[in-house]
Design a binder for these strands. Structure first.
Length: 420
RNA sequence: GUGGGUGUAGUUCAAUGGCAGAGCACCGGAUUGUGGUUCCGGGCGUUGUGGGUUCAACUCCCAUCACCCACCCCA
């Protein structure tokens, strides 16, 4: 083998495809019934779009972005996430001037230069929702409910929805100050990573896993105590709405979104039983992002989830996603005359929407019947010398073994039988 | 980016430094046109790759690549 697939990527092979189609179709369906329409953006964008929106200090931008220059020296990046491109498109196409809400969803590959691990790839596929246009807490609940209903609808049970509010930029900076005050005295005892976090993103100190840091962080103030009145009201309204929609959640004041643009509502869905990469999806409000990217000041909220982990979780929970398609009929011929007769027949069946399989390389009758059995086709359509002579075909039900003879010409009757 | 583990047939796994094997899967056959069960037959695979040690390496050593696990990050 001379060529190898790039590290951290994978092929979706035909035997796996139907599962992907199933989860993708289910997502499209639920998005549609909530009024969301699909948007597809390029897989690469100006690198600065992500630098500015995700935050220069975020790991995603700092060390995980695939960057390249094109022939004219322009700086591009393979998109590491979906929200910034959607917002870029929204602003660029002046959807912000319409004055009404915009409901979008996307599905596509994202790219991050991470060390590969179970549930973590360098090219991975995400589904996501972006609601743009209103700060009404109903929409927080709507967006979260889409995610929740999608995942539970697929059959997942061991899900946990964790909810938090990171507040508006004002309460957020107030909170950062409070955290710095809290950690200041123990600064020297923190791990090197945390010492960096102290300066850049103090709230990251809260989910450090080093035991000594954990201990120090144990009594740190909670974000929720530093929400201003408006943010408090919003947060509790979101909770009320979720309650009314009967979506269970737990408040986790320590969940922190990795990208800088989040405000107020932040949430994450974790699946118990996936190992380290157990976060199935996450999202939140980003009320300042549209303005930051050059549009009007318009509130918005969204989420993104990864299909790879979703499929792992479905596998873990032994959810059956159906099976690959099997032929309705397997066509068996014997002799040259039969083969000639059968080609127009095949075409007619397929034209009528019937999945018909045929392999002229299988010579013997036995081999063909074996192949028919192996294909799990429901029927075998047999055209041999006898049939040619008698101007008819034999239709054999492979489950029951019953067979009947029918006129040679493809008829509605046969099509009905095969479709049944 | 850091630490640990693994790498043998399509696949799951064997092989005290001494001839590279088995189950499953796959293909063919068991007299003329009837499948699933059964029986018989079918495998030289650069033992991930490249070096080294040795009379001899799947086995020991080094490097490299890939995957897995954890950290990290995040979906």
């Amino acid at each position: 083998m001379d060529y190898k697939i790039p590290r951290g990527t994978y092929d979706i092979l035909p035997q796996q495809s139907y599962k992907w189609q199933k989860v993708i179709d289910a997502f499209r369906k639920i998005a549609a019934v909530c009024g969301y329409q699909e948007i597809t953006t390029p897989v690469f964008e100006q690198a600065s779009l992500f630098e500015r929106s995700s935050g220069e200090s975020s790991d995603v931008v700092k060390k995980e972005m695939y960057r390249f220059q094109d022939q004219k020296g322009r700086e591009f990046a393979l998109r590491p996430e979906g929200t910034a491109p959607v917002v870029r498109s929204y602003v660029e196409n002046r959807l912000d001037l319409g004055g009404s809400n915009t409901k979008l969803f996307y599905i596509g590959p994202m790219f991050r230069y991470d060390r590969p691990q179970a549930g973590r790839y360098r090219q991975f596929y995400q589904y996501g929702i972006e609601f743009i246009g209103s700060d009404n807490p109903y929409f927080d609940a709507e967006v979260i409910s889409i995610l929740w209903n999608y995942l539970t609808g697929l059959g997942l049970r061991r899900l946990r929805l964790e909810l938090n509010s990171v507040g508006c930029p004002q309460c957020s900076t107030a909170y950062d100050t409070a955290l710095r005050n809290y950690f200041q005295p123990s600064l020297a005892d923190l791990c090197p990573d945390c010492q960096l976090r102290f300066g850049q993103k103090p709230r990251r100190l809260l989910d450090c896993k080093v035991p000594s840091c954990k201990q120090i962080a144990a009594y740190a103030p909670s974000q929720l105590e530093y929400l201003d009145d408006a943010c408090k009201v919003h947060f509790s309204a979101v909770q009320d709405n979720l309650g009314l929609m009967q979506i269970p959640f737990t408040i986790n004041p320590r969940i922190v979104r990795g990208l800088d643009y989040y405000t107020n509502t932040a949430f994450e869905i974790v699946y118990e039983g996936l190992g380290a990469q157990n976060s199935l999806a996450g999202g939140g409000r980003y009320n300042g992002l549209i303005e930051q990217i050059g549009g009007k000041s318009i509130p918005a909220i969204g989420f993104a989830g990864g299909f790879e982990r979703l499929l792992l979780a479905l596998d873990e929970e032994e959810v059956e996603l159906g099976a690959p398609g099997v032929p309705d009929v397997y066509v068996i011929t014997l002799g040259e005359a039969a083969q000639k007769l059968v080609l127009p027949y095949l075409n007619a069946l397929r034209g009528a929407g019937i999945y018909a399989e045929f392999d002229p390389d299988k010579a013997s009758f036995k081999a063909q019947l074996k192949a028919a059995d192996h294909s799990q086709a429901r029927f075998a359509l047999i055209v041999g010398e006898d049939e040619v002579a008698a101007n008819q075909v034999t239709l054999k039900n492979l489950q029951s073994g019953e067979q009947q003879t029918l006129p040679l010409e493809p008829s509605d009757r046969i099509i009905q039988l095969l479709k049944a």
